[in-house]
């Protein structure tokens, strides 16, 4: 993280969040992460809908792309994928 560490006199009161969760690479926690077989993907977007970390990026037309920086590897996308296009691969 490039943000300098602030002291207690510099922090906003009440411990309100001041660093976006986008800057928090929870992908480091993953043991398994999704790999998509593009030939099987029907672009239904269910992986994008179900992802609890909103890690998938999808433009509504092409194959959804998981952001591996934020994917914790829960495997919900692979379980929900109707064509079994997603495989969880050990990182």
């Amino acid at each position: 993280m490039s943000t300098p560490m602030l002291g207690w006199k510099e922090l906003p009161m009440g411990a309100v969040a001041f660093i976006s969760s986008k800057e928090y690479p929870t992908g480091e926690w993953a043991v398994f992460q999704p790999k998509i077989d593009e030939s099987k993907c029907i672009k239904c977007g269910l992986c994008w809908i179900y992802c609890p970390d909103s890690a998938y990026r999808w433009d509504g037309e092409n194959v959804p792309v998981p952001s591996l920086e934020h994917c914790k590897g829960c495997g919900i996308c692979a379980a929900e994928c109707p064509t079994k296009a997603i495989e969880m691969v050990r990182v």
Partner: peptide, 14 residues
């Protein structure tokens, strides 16, 4: 309150 963000400081109602 003033919140330091990576995009710069912003002031918001608490």
């Amino acid at each position: 309150i003033k919140i330091p963000t990576i995009y710069g400081e912003k002031e918001v109602p608490f």
